[in-house]
Amino acid sequence: MKRKKINVDRVFNTFNGLIMAIVLIVTLYPFLNVLAVSLNESLDTVKGGITIFPRKFTTENYKVIFTYQNLLNAFFISVLRTVVGTVAGLIASSMVAYTLSRSDFQARKFFSTFLVLTLYVSGGLIPGFLLMRDLHLINSFWVYILPAIVNAFYIFMIRTYMEGLPFELQESAFIDGASDITVFIKIILPLSTPVLATIALFIAVGQWNSWFDTYLYNGSNDLLSTLQFELMKILQSTQTGSDMARNNNVLEQMTTVTPDSIKMAITIVTVVPIIMVYPFLQKYFVKGMTIGAVKS
């Protein structure tokens, strides 16, 4: 009887491990493909057929990107907006989420509805732009942070998690005379690390990847330019290089790099810093916090 059970377990583990291995290969492919193309000679890439290894190795595509000035400053701004945006977003979302997780909170239903609607309604580009103009947020770093601080989706994710925590934990603290803020900081936050790590990842990736707000609001100010925006500019100008040739019918010179190859190199340059964040956060939700441990 016992032996049979171990066998079932082992079969399950092997089978499961195998499926995970397939997932691993299938999901790794697009990324390896991008990497291989980014390290392959542009004109050779045009022929197609690059899978996971470069055929004619070159670092030319990266060199083209790194000849641009302002990348370092833009990188700094990107890091800054990611850090500030994530910290501010986490503070805001967790505080609001806590209040909404309290079933005795008067404004709970009203605030929830008020927040959830923001996920489905938006006024559009022009009213948004005029608002930023009137708030003097154009040409300012804060346009990256303030409008994005409160995100209803993140709030609901955190709230759901907090609601799952046993209420007795808070109750005893309240009986001891602790305030709402104390309970939030001392009891709720430490227990919520898995969901906070997850949301931190979401916010960080969103902040790191966004370039459109830079373009809309800070496009004319090099000091506030972000890495993603600078890279978008490089990509665009390699593309319009050929468009210009078309409009003016000028004699096109044989270029050594193509927009497609630049695009792949840019993907790698932007993805690598942000995926390095992942392992740091991962430990918080792969291991997680055990409620039992906190209870005792």
Binding site: R102, F105, I126, P127, G128, L130
Partner: peptide, 26 residues
């Protein structure tokens, strides 16, 4: 519940400004 309000109202105001005001565009 003043602390609960303190923790949520500032952000509700932010939402009002950034998400609700532009709806005049409709």
């Amino acid at each position: 519940q003043r602390y609960l309000y303190l923790m949520s109202v500032p952000f509700i105001i932010l939402v009002l400004i950034f998400n609700y005001i532009p709806i005049w565009g409709w």
